[in-house]
Simulated assay, not measured.
Amino acid sequence: MANRVSMYGILVALAFIASYIEVLIPFNFHVPGMKLGLANIIVLLAMYTGGLRAGITVSVIRIILVGFTFGNPYSAIYGLSGGILSFGVMAVLKRTDYFGIVGVSIAGGVTHNIGQLFCAMVLLNLPAVFSYLSYLMFIGVITGALMGIIGDEILKRIVKLKI
């Protein structure tokens, strides 16, 4: 139990640092709140080395911490809506063993954007936010693929963690 808790702590810290690095990178494509998704690399590593429970734990704790540290309660809500939806899709795809880590990551990137847009539509009562959907899907595919490739390369180089 102590080993699992300490590993979760390390993974959450790594994801938090990745999110902080992302805040420092001037990545602006004129879409509010758009990010690269660097922390998704850590969530993928947690999923593929420690299982789905490790992945969802790291993802949710990181989103809450980042939302309140670098944002506000609304950014935490948007992050959770995208994060939970994307994690659910990634978990289903991972279990099928049909998609590799890159495909799982791409699906996660796209569905994260869809979850956040749906949340914005509900909170703001503004269906027009879905006008960003095609653009965000394109960016989600690119960043998801990039994060998946990086995650795959890291997985090839580390010893499987026992979480």
Rank of each mutant, 00 (worst) to 15 (best):
F27P: 09
G88A: 12
A15W: 01
Y78N: 07
G115M: 07
I114F: 12
A13F: 05
K35A: 10
L80I: 13
I163H: 00
N28H: 15
Y8F: 05
G79E: 12
L45S: 02
Y98C: 12
I21V: 14
Y20I: 11
N72L: 02
L146H: 03
L123P: 09
S6M: 13
G82R: 02
G83P: 02
L117S: 02
C119I: 06
I42D: 01
V92W: 10
C119P: 08
I21N: 06
T143H: 10
Y8P: 00
R62G: 08
R53S: 00
I64P: 13
L124M: 15
V31K: 09
D97Y: 07
I101M: 10
F29Q: 11
V122Y: 10
I25P: 09
G115Q: 06
G79Y: 13
I84C: 07
M90L: 04
L155I: 06
Q116F: 05
G33T: 10
I154N: 04
L93S: 01
L117Y: 05
G103T: 05
I21H: 06
R95K: 14
V129P: 08
L11I: 05
F130H: 09
V12Q: 01
V92P: 01
S6G: 08
A15D: 01
T57Y: 05
I158M: 14
L136M: 15
T57D: 02
L80Q: 08
T57L: 04
F138L: 15
D152V: 05
G51L: 07
F16S: 02
G50N: 03
A128N: 11
V12H: 00
G50C: 10
I21T: 10
T111S: 03
F70A: 09
I150D: 11
V23I: 14
A145Q: 02
G9L: 00
F87P: 00
Y8N: 00
L44N: 04
M137W: 04
I61Q: 02
F16M: 06
P26W: 04
F70V: 09
N72P: 01
L133K: 02
V122L: 15
R4V: 08
Y135W: 13
R4W: 03
L146S: 14
S131A: 13
Y132V: 09
M121L: 15
G71K: 07
L14G: 07
N72S: 09
C119Y: 08
G55N: 07
A145N: 03
S81H: 13
G55W: 08
M121K: 14
K160H: 13
E153C: 09
I25C: 12
F130A: 06
P73Q: 05
G100H: 08
T69M: 13
S134V: 15
P26Y: 05
V31Y: 09
I21K: 04
D152I: 06
K156V: 04
L45H: 02
T69A: 14
R4I: 09
Y135Q: 12
V60Q: 07
I56S: 00
F70G: 09
Y98W: 14
S105N: 01
E153G: 12
